Amino acid sequence: MGYILRAIDKSEQIKISVAITTDVVQEASTIHNTSKTASAALGRVLTAAAIMGSWQKNEKDSLTITINGNGPSGRVVATCKNDGFVKGFMTNPSADLPVRESDGKLDVSGIIGQGDMTIVMDVGLKKPYSGTVNLVTGEIAEDLAAYFLQSDQIPSAVGLGVLVDTDYSIKAAGGFIIQLMPGAEDEQIDKLEENLSKLDGITSLIEKCNGDGEKILEILMEGFDVKILEKRDVFYRCDCSREKVIDAIVSIGPEEIENILVEDKKADVTCHFCNAHYHFDEDDLQDMLDKAKEINS
C-alpha cells in the first residue's frame, strides 16, 4: 500500500500532490518480473497515474496514461481509478539497458525511446477526454510537465522516481506534482524554484524522510503556509474477473466466437495487468456463442 497527500498553499495559488508508492511499484515489479530499468519506467508511470487518478471527482472515474515509445520497453500503460486502485503493464518488462555513463542512473529514456504520451480521462460522459503530446525526454516527469502546459496551460513541476536495489527489489518510489494556478506571484514562483533546485532527486528525498510524505511536503514547500486537503491510500490491484473476460469475448460477436469453436475448441486469455489466466473450454465457448447470438438477434 502507498498513499498520496493533496495540499494547497494559503493563497490557493499552488497545488501540490505527493505520492509514496514504494509498495505499489514493488507489487508491479513482482507481478511483471521487471528488469531494473523497466521497474523504474513502469513505476514512474504508475506513480503519475496514481496522483492524477486522485484528482478525479467520482469513485468510478478513471485515468489512463499510455506511453508509446520506439524503445525496447514497447508500450507502457498505467490506469488508476478514483478509488485508489492502480495497475499497469509494459510490452517488454524484461527490457533493460546499462546505467548511463553520464550520471550512473538507470536509462529510462533509453528504453522508452521517442514517441508520444496519451492521457485518457473517463468521467462518465459519452466520450472520454483524450490528449496526446510528443515525448520530450522519455524520462516521464518532464513529459508529463509538457503535457500539463500544452494540454491544460498549467505550469507544473513534476518529480517521479524509483530506486531499485541490487536484488531488483524496490527501495523507494514516489513522486510529486506541483501546479501553479492563475495569479501565482513571481515571488512565490522564485521561492518554489529555489526549493526545487536544492533537491538531489525524489528517491533521495524519500529515503531521507524515511518515506514520510508530510516531511517531503514540508521540504518541497519550505517557506509556504500549506494546508493538507486529503491523504488517500493507493494499492496495486487489478479488477479483472472471469465474468469480465466472458463479456469481452461475447462482445467480439457470434462469427468470431464460432471461428474459435471450430478451429481451437478452447480459448485462453491472460490479463496484461496481473497475469491472471482464464481458460474456457468448448462448452464455455458454446454458451458465449449463444449469448452473442441472442444479443445480436
Rank of each mutant, 00 (worst) to 15 (best):
I260E: 11
T203L: 13
D165W: 02
P72K: 07
V24S: 03
E222Y: 05
A7E: 06
S109T: 08
D247L: 12
V123W: 06
P72T: 10
S73L: 12
E59H: 07
S241I: 06
R232K: 15
C238S: 07
E12M: 10
T166E: 15
K57N: 14
S102V: 08
T34H: 08
L125Y: 08
G253E: 03
E187T: 12
D116G: 15
L220I: 03
D264M: 08
D122S: 11
I177D: 02
V25W: 05
E193Q: 14
K126Q: 14
V18C: 06
D268F: 02
I178T: 12
S102R: 13
L289C: 09
G88L: 02
G43R: 14
F85S: 15
M221Q: 04
G113I: 04
G69N: 11
A50C: 10
V76A: 05
A184W: 00
K191D: 01
M1E: 05
D281E: 14
D143F: 04
L149D: 01
R242G: 01
Q150Y: 02
G159H: 02
S156H: 05
A95V: 10
C274G: 11
I189W: 04
E27Y: 12
M52H: 08
V158I: 13
R242K: 15
T22C: 08
K227T: 15
K15C: 03
S39W: 05
L106C: 09
G43Q: 12
G161H: 09
S54G: 14
D152F: 01
W55P: 00
V158N: 02
E27D: 10
A172K: 09
N68W: 00
K10W: 06
D225I: 07
D225Q: 10
R232H: 09
S35R: 12
Q56T: 13
G174Y: 00
T22G: 08
G183V: 07
P98V: 08
E27G: 01
K231T: 13
D212M: 00
T30G: 00
D212L: 01
I178H: 01
S73H: 02
D212T: 07
H277N: 14
Y168A: 07
T79D: 09
L192M: 14
A248H: 03
S130V: 07
E294A: 15
S130L: 04
G88C: 10
I4K: 06
I249Q: 08
A292S: 15
L199S: 04
A19E: 04
I228P: 06
F280L: 13
D212Q: 07
N58G: 07
I111H: 10
D143R: 07
I119K: 03
G175H: 09
G211S: 06
P72H: 02
T47G: 10
E214I: 09
E59Q: 13
G201H: 04
R44V: 07
G175K: 13
F235I: 15
E142M: 01
T118E: 08
F273C: 11
T79W: 01
I65T: 10
H272L: 11
S109Q: 13
K293I: 14
D165Y: 05
H272G: 05
A292T: 14
N259F: 02
A40N: 10
I16P: 01
R237S: 12
C240P: 11
N195D: 05
K126S: 15
K127Q: 13
H272V: 02
S35W: 06
K191Y: 01
I8F: 03
E243T: 12
R237V: 00
S241V: 05
